[in-house]
Design a protein around this nucleic acid. Structure first.
Lengths: 216, 216
DNA sequence: TGCGGTTTGGACTATCCAGTCCTACATTCA
DNA sequence: TGAATGTAGGACTGGATAGTCCAAACCGCA
């Protein structure tokens, strides 16, 4: 029973991710969702702002369910999970043709400024995201070097991913993001104790980052 | 000879950095610049889009003159210059109260979507920025490890800085950004050959990133 | 059958905003 | 003196957009 409200939210989420909150008009949403008139929309939502909040919540839940799901996958090694997660962001961005990005990127910044309520919500999203990665590192226990602050590494990972998504949005080029993702994995490996990790760092230094293998 | 047009550009640049391009109306600009009416504005600019382009160019020039100037400072060691540059971004963001960010961040993404012309321009900004950092690494010559792709490292640095700025914009918190900046310097050091760099990495691993020294 | 929530369809208001147009006044410089 | 340019002030158009209101159909369910 896919109700109409969900369809509206899906359509709105797609539009907002692609063109931003302010730039997405109620009429756009109505058109994309195949509604007939405003009254129908306003039957389900009090205002555009409410729509924004619900879209944000929904995107957050979806991201929690699917995007972050890999971070919780118990059968895979924690660090490997983190690497897979990074790859999944790159793949997602490539699939979207380098536009729009994850629901909390350029859009996040725009909405954060548009309304304090949005900002707080997006802040919470970042927090939860950060927590997931942090707990992943903590789960790795003794593999992580002494003195490493998992929360701090988590924030670094998120910032770099967000920045990379933003960059591809401007350059419309996915190759650079792949390089950044690989380098980010090396950055993470740098915080691991055991030699396999360290060796991996050195190997990738002489593999993936060979001059010319990146983007011209 | 501070002409009126420059004042308008300055006011517009400030507004756009804070609230975005679309959200900044001509009337806002007129008010902030202390003009009397639209005719005066349209005497200097053909359209809002032209204003956008000129603001972008101007911000770019300013950033080139001041922001990137440190990257070209011949008396300072190249890598040290890069570190100073990273610090300057953090300081700049702190001074702005974590809002707005560098002219080419959230705003860039918004404008990139608003108009293809803007996108191309911003893309060029990233390119030049990337080139500056790349040439810095190339300048360091033998200090950089074999197999390291300077352009790729440059893109990583830029992505992480952009992401960090975006993050502080949402969290309104500068502390996290300081941690990210320090970690970014360690990432750069990781690509240097000589032991001082490597030692610096290890030292900072047991200094800056001690659990609890980051943000709670 | 009838009630309540959903859907359709569209008219309408109020507001914001980019851009136009027109009229003055001041300054500068030929 | 007179033309060009910059500044001032404001009326106006046209389009987009959020939000309201109303009337009628549709549909599941008691």
């Amino acid at each position: 029973m896919r109700d109409r409200k969900s369809e509206i939210l899906d359509a709105a989420a797609r539009l907002i991710a692609r063109q931003g909150y302010k730039q997405t008009s109620i009429d756009d949403v109505i058109g994309a969702a195949g509604l007939c008139g405003k009254s129908h929309f306003y039957h389900h939502f009090k205002s555009k702002e409410q729509l924004g909040h619900e879209v944000l919540n929904r995107s957050f839940e979806r991201f929690g369910e699917r995007g972050l799901a890999i971070l919780r996958e118990p059968l895979i090694d924690p660090i490997e999970r983190l690497n897979l997660f990074i790859d999944s962001i790159v793949i997602g961005q490539a699939e979207q043709g380098c536009a729009g990005g994850s629901p909390f990127c350029g859009v996040a910044a725009e909405m954060a400024d548009a309304c304090e309520g949005f900002r707080v919500r997006i802040d919470a999203v970042f927090d939860r995201w950060c927590d997931q990665i942090r707990s992943l590192l903590e789960e790795s226990g003794d593999r992580v070097r002494d003195g490493v602050d998992p929360a701090r590494v988590a924030r670094f990972v998120i910032a770099t991913l967000e920045g990379a998504v933003l960059m591809t949005r401007v350059t419309r080029e996915i190759t650079a993001m792949r390089g950044i993702a690989d380098d980010l994995k090396r950055f993470i490996a740098m915080h691991l104790r055991e030699s396999p990790g360290q060796r991996a760092v050195d190997e990738s230094m002489h593999g993936a980052t060979l001059v010319g293998s990146g983007v011209a």
